[in-house]
């Protein structure tokens, strides 16, 4: 069983989550929300914060389930079904609590929560954590860094797309433009952060 305390280099894990293994641009996870929400800076910020929170918390919850229940019982093959149910239950619970106790926060963040259950970034984080056998602390750090990397690209793309629209540059129309922006950003990430092996 992987250890509770970090056995891996946490800084390296953080950098890899944000840059070299960026969820949106390198792993292609969470692209639906990327296409839909980067038209608008406000919703990009809201979604990024919500995703970072959920990926972090999903790592916190699923690690014990995987390592204390599924692995000892030899039920690793049930990981997908367990993880998605736990995430769905957790997201519903958070939405419920926020709406009841923090109406202001709910108005700015809560509306993005239902979208997160079907956001592959969250399930992707927990599946990768299980696959890579990270320690408990390591998997939480990886969860948060994946969310941060997602947020970084969301904000970059929202900024670029906003500027393009402002200048009236919309020659390719919505989705095509979004893909080209993503492609160019991805080119930067691939080259500068050493994804190509040397």
């Amino acid at each position: 069983m992987p250890a509770l305390l970090p056995t891996e280099n946490l800084l390296e894990l953080l950098i890899s989550g944000v840059f070299t293994k960026n969820f949106l641009l390198i792993y292609f996870l969470g692209l639906c929300s990327f296409l839909g929400l980067t038209k608008d800076m406000g919703s990009s910020i809201g979604m990024s914060m919500a995703v970072t929170f959920v990926t972090g918390m999903a790592a916190v919850i699923t690690w014990p389930i995987f390592n204390f229940i599924l692995v000892p019982l030899g039920l690793e093959f049930l990981q997908t079904i367990c993880f998605i149910l736990v995430i769905a239950a957790f997201v519903q619970l958070v939405e419920f609590i926020i709406r009841k106790h923090q109406p202001a926060l709910y108005r700015s963040l809560g509306i993005y929560l239902p979208l997160i259950t079907t956001n592959c970034a969250v399930l992707g984080v927990v599946l990768l954590n299980a696959q890579q056998n990270y320690s408990y602390v390591g998997s939480i750090v990886y969860g948060i860094s994946a969310g941060l990397g997602y947020g970084l690209v969301m904000l970059l793309a929202a900024g670029i797309r906003g500027k393009l629209l402002q200048r009236g540059v919309d020659m390719f129309g919505g989705f095509t433009g979004a893909f080209l922006v993503a492609g160019l950003l991805s080119l930067i990430f691939v080259n500068y952060f050493g994804v190509i092996q040397f």
């Binding site: 129309g173 095509t176 893909f179 492609g183 991805s186 691939v190 994804v195 190509i196």
Partner: peptide, 22 residues
């Protein structure tokens, strides 16, 4: 062009195809 196998190539391919389709 190895770049087509790497992530950016995916974005450019689908972007161009979607433009063509539209």
């Amino acid at each position: 062009a190895t770049i087509m196998i790497l992530p950016p190539g995916a974005f450019f391919t689908i972007g161009s195809l979607m433009f063509l389709f539209k």
